[in-house]
Amino acid sequence: MAKYGLRTIAVLYLFFLLVLPVGLIIWRTFGDGLGPFVEALTSASAVHAFQVTLTVALWAVAANTVFGVGTAVLLVRHRFPGKRLLNALIDLPMAVSPVVVGLALILVYGRFAPVGGLLESWGVQVIFSTPGMVLATVFVALPLVVRAVVPVLEELGDDQEQAAHTLGASRLQAFVRITLPGIRWALAYGVVLCLARSLGEYGAVAVVSGRLVDQTQTLTLFVEERFQNFDQPAAFAAATALALIAVITLLLTKLLRPKG
């Protein structure tokens, strides 16, 4: 009996928390057929938001992939002072609210801040522009690749890399030919997670972007702005698009996971 009770609670919990809200969004989106959905998503602002989201996400994923693999190798294969500190810092973005991240970035890179001012004098605008949004997204998605790769790298051990060295491979050759293929599934998993997180980021980007419609508006910001302006069809359509992307990445991670 207790078993059924628990099941009922679990199902109800998931229903009210997840199934009902998402289902309603999809219901509202497609309530009047496919036409309004397509129309809402092909408006100039929506298309622009898509482009901004994609640009920011791709740069952030690229940066986090390179940084993530590099840091994972550093943490697993090297000994250096401050290693534990670095290890702890990697997880910081998980604990800090994205809004705080955004504010912190403004403090450093804002027009009237020292670093930001210097960059501004060189013609590089960080805050209220793409670089700032990329920075914010990189920050919030920072641990994902590192944390996916570290355990696999540990399990892989360094025997194969050492064997490659004795066979004449340089560090780079051993990395490209031996290490990278050894961690490929974990890396792919980390990258997909990072992409999902980057596409869905709201808080930090909201702060540093300045929410300039048709300039720095990402898809998540678009949803919120349309909703505030009572353009519910557009808000729901974009929200559904985001949810669909999330579902697809979720399926991808499920495919990648068992091969870890």
Binding site: D159, Q160, Q162, A163, A164, T166, I178, P181, G182
Partner: peptide
């Protein structure tokens, strides 16, 4: 030098 490891260190992929 050729080196052979106790646990083979085979390139698995």
């Amino acid at each position: 030098v050729g080196f052979v490891f106790q646990h083979y260190a085979a390139f698995k992929h």
